[in-house]
Amino acid sequence: MSLSVAEKSYLYDSLSAFPAIRPDGRKPYQFRPIEISTDFLPNSNGSSRIIASDGSECIVSVKSKVIDHTIDNDDLIKVEVDIAGQRDDSAVVESINSLLSKVLKPNADTLDTSKLQLTKKYSFKLYVDVLVLSSYSNPISLISFAIYSALSTTTLPKLVSGFDDLEVEELPTFHDYDLVNLELKSPLVFLLALVGDNLLIDPASNEYEVANNGLIVTWCNGKVTGPIRTISLNNFYSKGFDASLLGKGIKLVEEHANDVLQALES
C-alpha cells in the first residue's frame, strides 16, 4: 500500500504522540481480533486456520512421518511457508521460512521434541506446512499463532510395539484407531512497530508505513527466547532506534504474552 505524504505524516504524528494514538484506537499492547478454526483437514494430523479482522488469513497443516533417527539426523520439525502470489524463492518467503525454522528449532527449554521419539530407533518427523492466503502486513505473528493452534490439536497414532527396538529388530506398530495428543507447545512470535519512542504490538498495514523500525520477539513457556530481530517495515521512515526500546519491547511482550496464550488456549 502506498500512502500519501500527508497521510503518513498524520499517522506518524499520531503514533509518536504520548500516549500513542493508533488509527483504530487500540492500546499499544492490543491485538486485532482473530478467529481460529482447528481440525478441519482429516488427511493431516493437525490443522488450523486463522483469520485476522483485516482479512489476513493463513492455514497450517501438520503431517507426520515415521523416520529412523539414527540415519536421518535432521530436525524433527520441518516448516515450509507458501505465500499466495509470491514465488517460493522470493525474499519475503525465504526470510519468513528461515525465521520460522529458527523459531521451531527443537530445544530442550522451549520446544521439547523428545515427545516425538517413538523408540530407540524411530521418531515421528513433523511437517508443518503454512499457506498464507492473504496478508496485508508481515504475517509472522499470525503464522506463529496458527502453528501453535495446529500443534496443540495435533494427534498422532498410538504406539503399541515396544520402546527398545535396538536389540530386537522390529518396525514400530500402531494402534488401529487410538490417537494420542501431541501437546507440543510451540513458541509465539510477536511483531512490534517502533514509532518515535512508542512500541506498538500487531501493527496494522498503515502503521507499518510510518514505523521507524520493527522488532520481532519470540516467546515460549513464560519467557522471551530467541530469535529476537529487528525488521525494517518500510523504506521511508526506517532508522535506528534507542537501545532502551529493545528492553521496553521485551518487557511489553513479557507482560502480555500470557494473555495471548490463554486466549489461544481457551
Partner: peptide, 15 residues
C-alpha cells in the same frame, strides 16, 4: 491452481 503439498494423504515432497 495451487495444489498444496499437504492436500493428499501422503505429503508430497515437491511443489
Amino acid at each position: 491452481v495451487n495444489i498444496t503439498k499437504f492436500s493428499k494423504m501422503e505429503r508430497s515432497k515437491s511443489s
